[in-house]
Design a binder for these strands. Structure first.
Length: 146
DNA sequence: CGTTTGACTACGC
DNA sequence: CGCGTAGCCAAAC
């Protein structure tokens, strides 16, 4: 599959960001990609379209045993991108559930409740990263309880 | 070797 | 709201 320039370096940054995601919250591939400056000679417009897929590759190559909460990275729709019904997809859903992240009736995660808008400004500055765009909806979430 | 295949997303119908 | 497509390339087949 396609890879970003400096594959290993890019992956390491993705994993580092992923480790910042608090338990019980989630970020999207696109958000993480938006935080990382375009690597190598990648132009911003190409990066905007390819970044999220590269983040997906980083997740696919997540090193085990290093505490990278890969399950907290989901797609822009709020769903799991792994093949539906696969062992890995079920594990991701299970891990998120044990963290308290719940799926709505459409099988999607509500960003207004579980979405994380990134690390604080100091951390971003220290790591030369940009703040990610928020995935939270502008209009207030309607409470459908009762 | 030539083909297929992706942990994605924005955009146009 | 659903579906197709571009973007763009290293590996596995």
């Amino acid at each position: 599959m396609w890879n970003p320039p400096d594959r290993e370096v890019f992956f390491a940054i993705v994993w580092k960001i992923t480790q910042q995601i608090p338990e019980g919250l989630v970020m999207t591939y696109g958000q993480i990609a938006a935080m990382i400056p375009p690597p190598g000679d990648t132009t911003p417009d190409v990066y905007e379209r390819m970044g999220s897929r590269w983040v997906g590759q980083a997740m696919n190559n997540t090193p085990e045993g290093q505490g990278v909460p890969w399950q907290r990275v989901i797609n822009s729709k709020g769903g799991i991108s792994l093949l539906a019904g696969s062992r890995a997809a079920e594990q991701q859903r299970h891990l998120l559930h044990t963290e308290g992240v719940e799926f709505n009736e459409k099988g999607l995660i509500d960003f207004n409740i579980y979405g994380w808008d990134g690390p604080d400004a100091d951390w971003l500055k220290a790591n030369d990263l940009y703040p990610p765009p928020s995935m939270k909806s502008d209009d207030p979430q309607q409470l459908n309880l009762f």
